[in-house]
Amino acid sequence: MKLPYVFLYMVLALIAVFQIYPLIWLLSFSLKDNTEIFGKSPFALPESPKWENYVKVWTDGNIGTYFFNSVWITVLSVALTVLLASMVTFAITRMNWKLNKPVLGLFMVGYMIPIHSALIPLFSMFNKVGLIDNPLSIVITYTAYNLPLTIMILLGFYYSLPREMEEAAIMDGCSINRLFFKIILPMTTPVVSTTVIINMIFNWNEFVFVNTFISSEKYKTLTVGIQNFIGQYMTDWGAIGATLMISVLPLLIAFIFFSDRIIDGITAGAVKG
């Protein structure tokens, strides 16, 4: 009994090293200059750490603005997506109507579009309604493009939710809104946290839409900030590394927070149940 566990832990630890290494690598990458990055072994630690990469990132360009925009655009889009997707999934799995399966099918088709083919039509639509260079265009695009995926993930969980509780609630004269917001949403905290994490990562790292629909500095996000260091013929990779590092830290913190909700939710739900 003991030996297999030792072996298992060794394998798990080895995988852990592989998985955490990219973060360490990125940190070391962000403290190098191009000569070191391309010329020396990628394993090597920076010879003399170039903290000036971080100084450069902080002082050149508008990283503060970018950061603020990334945060609010991500938070708003994630909240909208997860709320709307939960409502749709609830209606599809719990409410009685004939068109629920075709409608689900429509959402699934929405997952299949390659984003680059949508760029030109989307731009032309936003242009017609004056939403170009308006962060609203980004928020609704993120929401729409992540809805199908979020709904599909939620779906599997909603089917496994016990129905007894809602039946009892309805018997007691509970309205649908109350049922959804007060009972269903709290019960699905684990999967909601999961979809929040996934949406958060996608939106935080997205740049094709921002790049295309936004032109003012005041609305750009962190991923666009990377471009500040890509030149016509040369790219300053150390500074890009520093930007990436700055950009991944808040995500890491938020991730750890929501990652714990995956378990908390269960226990909370279990207590209520």
Partner: peptide
């Protein structure tokens, strides 16, 4: 519960799809 999301997807995904 369904229409707002469906509208979003219809306008921002299906119209581009048809245009494509």
């Amino acid at each position: 519960y369904v229409l707002p999301s469906l509208m979003l997807v219809a306008i921002l995904i299906f119209i581009p799809l048809v245009l494509t």
